[in-house]
C-alpha cells in the first residue's frame, strides 16, 4: 500500500493554487478572466477546508465549503450582471480603462 499523501501536501497545493489565482487577478486585463482567477482562489480555499476537515475528523469544514460555493455562485451572478451592464453601456472590457472613480 503506497503511503498516503500527508496533510501538508494538500495545504501546500492549495497555497500554490491560491497564489496562481492572486497573480491572475492582479495581472490580467480582461475582466472575465479576472473573475475566473477569483473562482480559482475560492477553490484553493475549498481544498484547504476539506483537507483540514478530514484531518480533524469534523464535518464543519465541509459545511463551510458548502457555504463558500453558495456565496461564489451568488457573487458570480451579480458580477456577470455588472459586466453585462457595462458592455451594454458601450464600455470596454479592459480593466485598465475602467477607471472613472479616480481622484
Amino acid at each position: 500500500m503506497p503511503p498516503t499523501a500527508p496533510l501538508t501536501w494538500y495545504l501546500g497545493l492549495s497555497a500554490v493554487l491560491f497564489a496562481i489565482g492572486a497573480i491572475g487577478v492582479l495581472v490580467r486585463r480582461n475582466v472575465i478572466v479576472i473573475f475566473m482567477a477569483i473562482e480559482l482562489m475560492l477553490n484553493a480555499v475549498n481544498l484547504t477546508f476539506v483537507a483540514l476537515a478530514r484531518s480533524l475528523g469534523s464535518m464543519d469544514g465541509q459545511v463551510i465549503v458548502f457555504f463558500v460555493m453558495t456565496v461564489a455562485a451568488a457573487e458570480a451572478a451579480v458580477g456577470l450582471a455588472i459586466i453585462i451592464a457595462l458592455s451594454r453601456n458601450g464600455e470596454t472590457m479592459n480593466a485598465d480603462e475602467l477607471v472613472t472613480l479616480r481622484w
Binding site: 492582479l26 475566473m36 456577470l80 453585462i84 472590457m93
Partner: peptide, 23 residues
C-alpha cells in the same frame, strides 16, 4: 457557474484575445 461564464462570454462576444494579455 462556469457555464454562466461561458454564456456571458458568448453573449457579449468577448472571445477576442487580449492584445497584450498582461499589465
Amino acid at each position: 457557474i462556469v457555464v454562466l461564464f461561458l454564456f456571458v462570454i458568448m453573449l457579449l462576444n468577448l472571445t477576442q484575445t487580449e492584445p497584450r494579455p498582461t499589465a
